[in-house]
Write a protein that binds this DNA or RNA. Structure first.
Length: 260
DNA sequence: ATGGCGACGCAACGTCGA
C-alpha cells in the first residue's frame, strides 16, 4: 500500500501536477491539503475518469483537505468529531486493502500559527489538543495512518537552520511537545523511522530559491505502531518542487507491505 | 540572510501562508 500526502497550495492551480504525479507514482491513497476550493468546485469527475474515488472537505480561499483513493472508503468523516471548527482541516476514511484489512486514513492540515504571540498560535494549540483528544478517545479496532501538513518540524534535523529559527513558529518547544505527544500515543514518524539521520525537507519558502535548499520537514505520515512491521519505505519526492509553478510543498510517501 | 514569492479575491493591493 503506497500512501502519499501533499500540500498542493490550491488544487485549482495544481491539478495538472497532481494528475501527472498520480500517473507516474500510482499511489493507492493520496491525501491533499490546502485545496482552497469549496466542495461544489472539487473536480470529482476528473478522478472518476481515472477510476479513483475522491473525498473532500473544503472551503473557498483557505484550507481544504481531500483523500484520493483507488478503493472506495467507508465511514468518511469530515472535521474532528466534537470539535467545533469553522476551518476545513480534517477528513478521514477507512481503506480496505486487498487482504480485507481495514485502516483509517486521515488527511490533516494543522494550523500554521503565524507567530507564538498570535491568536492563531492559540488556535493551533487548541486544534492540536482536539486532534490528540480525538485520537486518544477513539476506541475502535481500526489502526490509524495520519498524514498531512503538520506545520511542525519535529527535530533539529528537520530545519535548515535550527539556531536562527530557535523559538519561532514551526520549531517551538510547545509545538514539538504536541508532536511528541503523538509519538507517545503510539504513532511512528515513518520518514524518521526509515531515515534516522536524513536532513531532508518537504517545504521550501517561495521567497528563497529552491536550489539553496533552505527548507523544513513539516509534512508527515504517521502510523500506529502496530503497523510498524509492515513499514517498508518512507521518502520525500522533491521532484515536484522543480516543476513550473510548483506548490511550495512536495509529496511525502510511505509504503507498507502487508505480505512481507 | 525573515525577505526578495505566490494564491486569493477581485480588479488594486491587502491578507495570508510557513
Amino acid at each position: 500500500m503506497k500512501i502519499a500526502s501533499w500540500n498542493v497550495n490550491s488544487l485549482k492551480v495544481r491539478l495538472p501536477h497532481v494528475l501527472d504525479w498520480i500517473n507516474l507514482n500510482q499511489p493507492d491513497v493520496l491525501c491533499l491539503q490546502e485545496t482552497k476550493q469549496n466542495n461544489d468546485n472539487f473536480p470529482h469527475d476528473v478522478f472518476d475518469q481515472k477510476g479513483l474515488f475522491s473525498y473532500h472537505n473544503g472551503q473557498n480561499t483557505y484550507n481544504g483537505v481531500a483523500i484520493i483513493s483507488n478503493k472506495e472508503l467507508i465511514n468518511v468523516q469530515l472535521d474532528i468529531p466534537n470539535f467545533n471548527d469553522e476551518q476545513k482541516r480534517f477528513i478521514s476514511g477507512i481503506y480496505t486493502n486487498d487482504d480485507g484489512d481495514k485502516h483509517r486514513v486521515i488527511s490533516a492540515y494543522i494550523p500554521n500559527g503565524q507567530a507564538l504571540t498570535s491568536d492563531k498560535f492559540e488556535y493551533k494549540i487548541n486544534w492540536l489538543k482536539s486532534f490528540l483528544n480525538y485520537l486518544q478517545k477513539k476506541n475502535d479496532e481500526i489502526e490509524n495512518i495520519i498524514t498531512g501538513d503538520f506545520n511542525i518540524a519535529p527535530s533539529e534535523l528537520d530545519c535548515y537552520d535550527s539556531k536562527s529559527w530557535d523559538g519561532k513558529i514551526l520549531v517551538s518547544p510547545q509545538e514539538r511537545a504536541y508532536f511528541n505527544k503523538l509519538l507517545k500515543l503510539g504513532f511512528i514518524d515513518t520518514f524518521r523511522e526509515i531515515n534516522p539521520n536524513a536532513n531532508e525537507f518537504s517545504w521550501w519558502d517561495y521567497r528563497i530559491p529552491f536550489q539553496r535548499n533552505l527548507g523544513m520537514r513539516i509534512d508527515h505520515i504517521l502510523l500506529s505502531k502496530n503497523l510498524l512491521p509492515f513499514l517498508e519505505k518512507a521518502y520525500i519526492d522533491k521532484t515536484t518542487r522543480t516543476f513550473e509553478r510548483p506548490s511550495d510543498h512536495v509529496p511525502v510517501v510511505t509504503e507498507l507491505n502487508f505480505n512481507p
